[in-house]
Design a protein around this nucleic acid. Structure first.
Length: 405
DNA sequence: TCTGGGGTCCTAGGACCC
DNA sequence: TCTGGGGTCCTAGGACCC
């Protein structure tokens, strides 16, 4: 049976949400109407564009470029910091409103949702529902969304990306040749900056070119990715709207340091602070990890990641830190200037599912104590806030990261 | 004042086993 | 002298998304 899918995408999400917040706090200007961007902090070496206003877009500013580049393109550009607390609040409001329409709703990102309306249309059409959602979000939440209307997720997503802002677009199968095929191949979902030049080289320039090219040839050249891009170009996508919250597969944090660090003792302190953050999140998910992964980025922007399997799955800070330290020591050549440090845990499993007996056999008293310590510290973090309770005391990340001005 | 941070999925080579 | 192949696990890195 044919699915009925909507894709809802907030227009310039971070910028719109910051604009609303500023107006609420008495701002005289709406930053949606001026050349403005939401950006990182250049003094913290994280100066990139996260979102742009329409006027900033007119200057040629693109997402993820440096603030420095953006200023060159648009001298009067105004820059505002991001605020994820506010973004999460708005995202939740949107999700709540959309949940009135179907139970089968997938939060694809902080500002995008897929809705499976197949059994929820009652007496209206899918397009009517899309138009209603577009209108209600604007009136009730104060920001605008694009809505894509189609029979699968890929086409709905492509549709919501057509003309912006505040629009509802259909992309039915019969509309593919006129609405999707003329677009440059770079517009197709999952085709990024590495693949597009390769396709161009093969004289594949539009989505239509890709759709009409030979699937077997693409498969030989790009593997699974080749099959997928051919299917997407032809509007084929059988994936389901994932409405049940999925357990994370991995959890990680990383930090760009305000200055390069070139000695291992300092790197270890940073590693501990990040590990504490990661394992805290891991324990909150009630999961344990089998793999620890350490990432280093040099001052020349060369990334290295090394990972090791743990002897048994755990969420204990000390055990994971010990493994991370082992990895760091093996991968770090003393004196190399490091710009970013990251820790990830992977191959997660649910703590409940672990067979207690087997687990306890290899767990000794020391480990029991360590786990109790984690529990206690986690409780304190819940009660008094994360920042005040770090195991390492002075080894807090704040020592390496300039406090927010 | 150059270049974020959090994810998922895939590939490929080597080790190891049968 | 010649000389398997299939499967799984582990690890590093790449591509892509928002």
């Amino acid at each position: 049976m044919e699915k009925q899918i909507l894709h809802v995408d907030v227009n310039n999400a971070f910028l719109s949400w910051t604009a609303i917040d500023m107006l609420k706090k008495g701002s005289k200007i709406d930053i949606r109407d001026i050349p403005a961007v939401i950006g990182g902090d250049e003094s913290k070496r994280s100066g990139i564009v996260l979102a742009k206003s329409p006027k900033a877009k007119e200057c040629g500013i693109v997402t993820a470029e440096t603030i420095y580049q953006a200023k060159l393109k648009c001298p009067g550009l105004q820059i505002f910091p991001s605020n994820y607390t506010i973004y999460r609040e708005n995202s939740n409001k949107l999700f709540k409103l959309l949940s009135e329409y179907t139970d089968k709703i997938e939060r694809f990102s902080i500002d995008e949702c897929f809705l499976d309306m197949t059994h929820y249309l009652m007496n209206s059409t899918l397009l009517e529902k899309g138009i209603e959602i577009n209108r209600r979000v604007k009136n009730e939440l104060g920001f605008t969304v694009n809505v894509g209307v189609a029979h699968n997720k890929l086409l709905a997503k492509m549709a919501s990306d057509f003309q912006k802002p505040d629009k509802v677009h259909t992309l039915w199968e019969e509309e593919i040749p006129t609405k999707m095929w003329p677009l440059p191949v770079s517009e197709l979902f999952m085709l990024g900056k590495k693949t597009v030049p390769k396709l161009y080289h093969m004289q594949i320039k539009t989505i239509g070119d890709l759709a009409k090219s030979d699937k077997t040839m693409l498969s030989k050249k790009f593997g699974k990715h080749g099959i997928m891009m051919w299917e997407y170009a032809n509007g084929i996508d059988n994936s389901e709207v994932k409405f049940q919250k999925e357990k994370p597969k991995g959890i990680g944090n990383s930090v760009t340091l305000p200055q390069d660090v070139r000695n291992i003792e300092q790197l270890e302190e940073i590693l501990l602070a990040i590990t504490e953050q990661v394992t805290y999140r891991l324990r909150k998910e009630k999961m344990i990890a089998n793999v620890v992964n350490v990432q280093l980025r040099t001052k020349d922007f060369i990334d290295k990641t090394h990972q090791r399997k743990l002897r048994y799955a755990t969420a204990n800070t000390k055990e994971i830190y010990n493994k991370a330290k082992e990895i760091l020591r093996e991968m770090y050549k003393n004196g190399t200037p490091i710009r970013l440090v990251g820790v990830r845990v992977d191959n997660l499993e649910e703590k409940e599912h672990k067979q207690i007996s087997l687990f306890d056999e290899i767990k000794d008293e020391k480990q029991e104590k360590q786990e109790k310590l984690d529990e206690t510290l986690d409780m304190l973090k819940e009660k008094y806030g994360y920042q005040t309770i770090t195991r390492a005391g002075k080894m807090n990340l704040d020592n390496y990261i300039k406090p927010k001005k």
